[in-house]
Simulated scan of single mutants.
Amino acid sequence: MLALGLNQFRKEHFWLYHVKPTDPTTYAAVGVILLSIALLPCYLPARRATNVDPMTVPRHE
């Protein structure tokens, strides 16, 4: 919402590659990209932790 409000100030710079400041496809694509970047570092250690036997972890600590 903040981006939609601030786009009135610098509207002339957003016409690069014919993308409008209120283009919903651009907002959705950026959201998907940021979400995937955030989920990948969470997924990799969790995936590796599923390969460990839960009963062997307390024995080693």
Rank of each mutant, 00 (worst) to 15 (best):
V19L: 13
L16Q: 10
T22V: 04
N7H: 10
T22L: 11
R48V: 14
C42S: 14
H60Y: 07
D53H: 10
P24F: 04
T26C: 03
P54Y: 11
P54F: 07
R48K: 11
M1Y: 12
A38V: 10
S36I: 00
P24V: 10
R48N: 14
E61S: 10
T26A: 14
A28S: 12
W15G: 08
P21F: 00
P54G: 04
N7R: 04
K20N: 06
K20L: 03
P58H: 05
E61H: 06
L34N: 10
R10P: 04
N51S: 13
T25K: 01
A29T: 06
I33V: 13
A38P: 00
P45G: 08
W15M: 04
A28E: 14
I37E: 10
L40V: 13
R59G: 04
P41E: 08
D23I: 02
L6P: 00
V57S: 02
A49D: 11
Y27T: 07
Q8G: 15
R47K: 09
R10H: 15
A46I: 09
L4G: 12
P45F: 04
Y43L: 12
Q8R: 14
A38H: 03
T50Y: 00
L39F: 12
Y43C: 01
V19S: 05
P41R: 01
K11T: 14
M55E: 14
K11N: 15
Y17F: 15
T50W: 03
F14C: 04
A3M: 11
M1C: 14
S36W: 00
T25W: 08
R10G: 09
G5Q: 12
V30S: 04
P58E: 09
V30F: 07
R59F: 06
G5C: 08
Y43R: 11
T50S: 14
V30E: 00
K11E: 13
M1D: 10
L44I: 15
P24R: 02
Y27V: 06
L40R: 06
L39N: 05
P21T: 00
V52H: 14
R48T: 14
D53W: 11
D53E: 03
H60W: 11
K11H: 15
R47N: 03
H13Q: 13
L34G: 05
G31C: 02
K11L: 11
R59N: 13
P41I: 03
K11M: 07
D23S: 05
G31W: 02
E12K: 08
I37C: 12
T26H: 04
T22H: 14
T50Q: 07
W15V: 08
A38K: 01
N51V: 11
A46L: 15
A29Q: 01
Y43N: 01
V57P: 11
D23A: 07
V52Q: 13
S36D: 07
H60K: 08
